[in-house]
Design a protein around this nucleic acid. Structure first.
Length: 551
DNA sequence: AATTCATACAACCGCTCGGAC
DNA sequence: TGTCCGAGCGGTTGTATGAAT
């Protein structure tokens, strides 16, 4: 566009006001050492200065640019300008059809993760892709066309089908030739235990649905609960991503960087990214070939869960929602359902999801991680000790003594209740989220029923409260609820060696100390103060934990 | 020719994260 | 351990451009 990089004798815009003056006027109090920081379009002179600076000093330390080069631009602006326009490796010109297909495919899989999409498209920037996508979405929406071409969907569906035959991946066998554990450690089985659960939760009907139809399924309930929010994904990613950081898009479990199921507000509706991206990011960051990664990915996760907001009880028409939604809503209307506005097919599937016999899904969760067996054993022992000592907690959690059958029944009742209550919701989609969420995740402190709602295992309340997630204080509350299982914690530890820092060790010490009883009183206290709901979930977690070999 | 509208894209903004201190 | 700051991401806004009326 001509708006950038005119000569220093800038073309005066239509409004007759010199843009330089405008920029200066808009600088809005941002004052650098060289005067007010300029905003607005870059001039070629500024570009030149920036290029020279970067050539000389390299990328990074952007805030130093204005100091050393005299450029009246903030570091942020410099970085953006360089990344989006001045980088020598940028590919100019229109998006090619191949690139377009790739973008569509990637968006189908990972949603609005522009930076990661850009990483998959050499020479293209996240901004470029984002703009392209947004305009494309608008165009398609206006035309009433599907966002994702059928061939993309069919491809994904077929891959999903194929992936069903790859259960071994989800049972801890992650030794795919292309799946090279970074830093010479295996992927913790805890991760794949949960993946397996998810895989089984995803019925074929669900798999064949447009992926975004599943957006209601909270990641926290289907996958994230087995994962640690502060996974040292960055290190993993760094093996394939030279860039310093692709925050959000890169994290191995990006969704977990964000609050999952805010226990106070009753659930973060924006948590939708994760169930898909957890694995996707993992695949990406593991250097796993995308074409093959689909198997792994699909075996555990459905693509398209990126589209968030599905829980938003909005009464607006689907197309009126945020851009990311079309991938959910419009797909439903376009391909999935004869009635574009009807969510019924989706709910039918979700209903199956909830009503399906989770008990059997829990069974495979019992295999200890091949590489964490010792720690698991230690933790299990600590758990056993705790069981004997922590009667008070057990009393508080009366559900701890529930039998499997009892819990199954309770769960069934809960599901019934939830789905009956759905009638009262403005948005059934939104409630579908909360319904599943209530079964699978602790999204609210005032849902004690959920704690006992998970079938398939005896719930060990104390185990749920066992781990004080000090790993990441920002999600501590959530973590306590979502990742209470010791072997889950260990799962995070299995990754910890990759996280360079002093905290890992201390975290490990803290957690193990906790597991060995340091926090018994805390556990009880938490339970007393309503954290009973913190365990309202994770039936499979508890199951896996419960089913661990007794020492 | 003037106006309106849609499109494309650059740039900004708010937020989060991780590292340094 | 907490705070600060740099870096980066995703969403949004602003604006030039072209087509349609």
């Amino acid at each position: 566009m001509s708006m950038t990089s005119e000569s220093d004798e800038r073309i005066i815009p239509n409004n007759g006001v010199d843009s330089t003056s405008v920029d200066d006027a808009n600088s809005g109090g941002n004052v650098g050492p060289n005067g007010p920081l300029k905003k607005g379009p870059w001039t070629s002179a500024e570009d030149k200065i920036l290029i020279e600076y970067v050539t000389k000093h390299g990328e990074g330390n952007w805030n130093a640019v204005q100091k050393h080069s005299g450029l009246a631009r903030c570091g942020k602006s410099c970085r953006l300008r360089w990344a989006n326009h001045l980088r020598p490796d940028l590919k100019k010109g229109a998006i090619t059809s191949e690139e377009e297909n790739r973008i569509i495919e990637l968006h189908y899989k990972i949603g609005n993760k522009w930076a990661r999409m850009a990483a998959e498209l050499p020479g293209r920037t996240d901004n470029e892709i984002k703009n392209y996508w947004n305009t494309r979405i608008k165009r398609l929406q206006r035309a009433g066309l599907p966002v994702y071409p059928p061939h993309i969907c069919s491809k994904q569906s077929s891959e999903n089908q194929q992936s069903e035959n790859m259960n071994t991946l989800s049972s801890g066998n992650v030794h795919h030739p292309n799946f090279v554990p970074v830093n010479s450690f295996d992927i913790p089985a805890v991760e794949f235990k949960c993946l397996k659960l998810n895989q089984q939760l995803y019925s074929p009907e669900l798999l064949n649905m447009p992926p975004n139809s599943l957006l209601d399924i909270p990641e926290s309930g289907l996958l994230a609960e087995g994962l640690h929010p502060s996974y040292p994904n960055k290190s993993l990613l760094s093996t394939v991503q030279p860039s310093k950081r692709l925050r959000g898009s890169n994290p191995l479990f990006p969704s977990l960087n964000a609050p999952i199921g805010n226990p106070v507000t009753g659930g973060n509706l924006y948590q939708g990214d994760g169930s898909m991206q957890i694995a996707q990011s993992f695949i990406f960051s593991s250097g796993y070939d995308l074409s093959t990664s689909d198997h792994l990915l699909s075996s555990s996760l459905l693509p398209g869960s990126h589209a968030v907001l599905n829980g938003n009880p909005s009464s607006e028409p689907a197309w009126a929602m945020k851009l990311e939604l079309p991938s959910l809503q419009t797909q439903m209307g376009t391909w999935g359902s004869p009635s574009p506005s009807s969510p019924l097919p989706f709910f039918e599937s979700v209903d199956n999801l909830i009503q399906s016999p989770l008990t059997e899904h829990m069974q495979p969760c019992n295999l200890p991680s091949p590489n964490s067996g010792l720690l698991d054993a230690v933790l299990y022992e600590s758990e056993t000790m705790k069981n004997s000592n922590n009667n008070r907690c057990q009393q508080i959690s009366s559900s701890s003594n529930m039998t499997v059958d009892t819990i199954d029944k309770a769960t069934h009742d809960l599901c019934q209740t939830e789905w009956e209550a759905y009638d009262d919701q403005i948005s059934p989609l939104g409630h579908s989220c909360s319904s599943i969420h209530s079964v699978s995740t602790p999204n609210s402190l005032d849902e004690p029923h959920s704690a006992e709602s998970v079938p398939g295992c005896k719930v060990k309340e104390e185990s749920r409260n066992l781990v004080p997630m000090q790993y990441n204080d920002k999600v501590e509350t959530t973590n306590e609820a979502l990742f209470p299982r010791p072997d889950f914690l260990l799962g995070s530890y299995c990754f910890s060696p990759m996280k360079h820092g002093t905290n890992d060790h201390s975290h490990r010490k803290d957690a193990i100390g906790t597991l060995l009883g340091d926090d018994l009183s805390r556990d009880c206290k938490q339970t007393d103060t309503g954290s009973t709901s913190s365990g309202q979930v994770h039936g499979h977690d508890s199951c896996a934990w419960n089913a661990m070999p007794t020492i």
